[in-house]
Computed example of a mutant assay.
Amino acid sequence: MIRVLIADDQALVRGALAAMLGLEPDITVVAQVGSGDEILPAAREASPDVALIDVQMPGKDGLTAAEELHGELPACRVLVCTTFGRPGYLTRAMAAGAFGFIVKDASPEDLADAVRKVHRGIRVVDPVLATESLVYGINPLTAREREVLTAVGAGNAIAEVAKLLHLTEGTVRNHLSAAIGKTGTRGRSEAAVVARERGWL
């Protein structure tokens, strides 16, 4: 039997995934958690073969938790399953040690097949996302540019961003200008939206 841990912050989704996988004769769900902080402790206790992890969750995000899980329990293979099919998330997931990345609108058959393949050590990647990742490439934003765009995306003015990140307003403008150029957009708000859509933030 393939032992599976499911991590998703939405109880209905978590339950549906568990019910779907529970119908498979060779798969058993051994743990379910609703936050990124619970993944590693649950994996230590339940010893899953595959961890099915969402990206956006309370506490640690799924990609950070996946990296921790891969580092401490490398025998447990990570399959990221998310609503947010963004190229940057795929790149980050693979860098974190994930073996697969699928979106939640996959069919039950495709989900079970992905779990089996990942368990066997075969990489599984949503084909549309794989293509988009090739088109957009690796995240071009620096860590500071990501911080500035995230703060701007939260609705902060330049002066507020400067105070929040302990930078001068001129430095914030410079980072924003660089981010706008790298995202091919016309303004800071649009740059933040595009970066988020591509999974770069």
Rank of each mutant, 00 (worst) to 15 (best):
A179M: 06
E197G: 00
G34V: 05
V135T: 04
L164N: 00
L73F: 08
L12H: 14
V128F: 08
R116F: 02
D126L: 03
T168S: 10
A66S: 14
N139C: 14
E190Y: 15
S35H: 04
G71L: 09
D8Y: 04
Y89T: 12
A18P: 10
Q32A: 13
Y136D: 10
G62R: 04
A151C: 12
R44G: 05
T82H: 11
A162K: 04
Q10K: 07
G121Y: 06
H70W: 11
I53W: 03
P25D: 13
V55F: 03
L52F: 08
R123G: 09
A11V: 03
A31T: 14
A192C: 13
G34K: 06
L23I: 09
R92D: 15
A19Y: 00
A93S: 15
M57L: 04
R44I: 15
P140G: 06
G62I: 06
D9C: 04
A65T: 04
A75V: 02
E38Y: 02
E72S: 13
V80I: 14
N174P: 01
V118N: 10
G34D: 12
S189W: 07
A93K: 07
D37H: 05
V78K: 06
G100N: 00
D54T: 00
E197Y: 01
P140M: 06
G22Q: 08
M20W: 07
Q56M: 14
A114I: 13
A114E: 08
R173Q: 10
V78F: 02
V161G: 01
R173W: 02
V78R: 01
K104Y: 03
V161I: 07
V194R: 15
I6T: 09
V13K: 11
G137W: 02
L164E: 10
R173I: 08
T64Q: 15
G184K: 12
G137R: 09
V80H: 03
D54V: 00
C81A: 14
G85N: 10
V115S: 09
A46S: 15
R198M: 10
V30M: 00
L129Y: 00
N156L: 14
Q10T: 10
A151K: 11
L69R: 01
G137S: 11
P58V: 03
L90F: 07
V125D: 06
I158H: 07
P74W: 11
G15I: 05
D110M: 07
Y136A: 11
A98E: 08
G22N: 07
V161K: 01
K182V: 09
V118D: 01
F99M: 12
V125I: 13
A7Y: 06
L63Y: 09
L73P: 01
Q32S: 09
K182Q: 15
L23M: 11
R186L: 14
L111A: 02
A114T: 11
